[in-house]
Design a protein around this nucleic acid. Structure first.
Lengths: 212, 212
DNA sequence: CTGGAAACAGAACGAATGTTCTGTGGCGCG
DNA sequence: CGCGCCACAGAACATTCGTTCTGTTTCCAG
């Protein structure tokens, strides 16, 4: 695929694990171990000069977390791909890592061969994830809408007004746009509040934006 | 892995493609082709009685789209896993499919072997995705925060108050929680509005929730 | 045709919000 | 030290919201 070997760096605090990874990288064809770091702080300081193609980053580092470390490094090395390694499948950490700029996420019990395959994949523009991780990521999209029961109670007009509220318009502006009176807007809004079981515009907007 | 064969159904309008898939399933060990449908309408009508373990669903169906079809079927068959197949990598369709309840997403040019592997994986609780698809899904998390420039202007206290506003609290409630006076809350909120360039609580909440 | 839902409208009132002032005290920095 | 930033506080005032009433009209289903 790639004529030049892929330069890979490792950030992992546990000595044994780190050395195993380095060994794995050295043995592999097409890869080149550019460096290894025992802490996020050390990586932030010295990794940028290496400018590796791929970084294997432990999520749970003492001191600066792997997530913070990734965020800082990604800002300076936008072309470098970050592949997170973790022992636990904590959803929050997964999403924070991805937000921080990681492109892949593997469990630490992944087979060595698969780790190598994942490095190639992430370098080729993919996003390798362990099975459980991928499912969590995908599920994130589905969770976004369960209690739409309350919204189904709303009439089309009420929904229309709610969506205008959720764009930040004042009652007066809504009345003008829909060519109805301020009183009518108030009436609709009041019914919306009842149906959504809220008692302020803020809560209604939050509910509306949350499930949509 | 699995003693019972995995029951798989296919929804695909193009005859040739559909027959190829069925052939592939029939040849495979550990799988069982439960049925094939040429349209979303037919699948919605007759697929539930089969209650397959996995459904291969074409995204681009004429008439009822694969996304709509998935949404309806998933509601009735929550334990069935849906694996989308598509010729094009359209981001919107990917996200809509996942929201509709799909658990995997493959390009149609995927190798037959990999399609079989994906079926097993989705049945085992994973979320197989083609490389390009996975990257799009992951990128979705990163796009969510660009214009946080305005938020960086906020002091910690202002951010704290904004986040309480975004939970729907009244000024009075915020004042009580933070043990400060109503006047102070007003003061902070006013500064927040200036820094975010908004002039109402609604707009501030919308901005805050939008980029976060 | 009778009843109910939905959209519309007006009034009146208190509560919450947004604006514009002024002023205090603490804290870091040149 | 003086300056600016932050957090805090009070006051006065206009605006916007939210609630509770009472109505009209239309349209649809029983």
């Amino acid at each position: 695929m790639k004529k030049n070997p892929i330069a890979v760096a490792v950030v992992e605090d546990v000595k044994g694990t780190r050395e195993n990874l380095v060994e794995l990288l050295k043995r592999a064809a097409g890869l080149n171990c550019a460096g290894a770091f025992a802490s996020g702080e050390a990586a932030v300081r010295d990794l940028p000069t290496l400018a590796p193609d791929v970084v294997l980053m432990d999520v749970n580092l003492p001191g600066m977390s792997g997530v913070q470390c990734t965020a800082q490094l990604k800002a300076r090395l936008p072309k470098t791909q970050f592949l997170m390694l973790t022992a636990y499948e904590n959803s929050e950490l997964i999403f924070e890592s991805l937000r921080a700029g990681a492109s892949g996420y593997l469990m630490k019990n992944t087979e060595p061969n698969e780790i190598l395959a994942a490095i190639e994949q992430v370098h080729a523009g993919g996003s390798p994830m362990s099975m459980q991780i991928a499912r969590k990521v995908v599920s994130h999209f589905q969770e976004i809408k369960k209690p739409s029961l309350e919204f189904e109670q709303l009439t089309p007009r009420e929904l229309e007004i709610l969506s205008l509220l959720a764009k930040g318009f004042l009652y007066k502006e809504i009345a003008d746009q829909l060519k109805i009176s301020l009183h009518t807007v108030r009436g609709h809004v009041h019914l919306v509040y009842e149906k959504l079981h809220v008692q302020s515009r803020s809560e209604a907007i939050i509910k509306f934006l949350g499930q949509k």
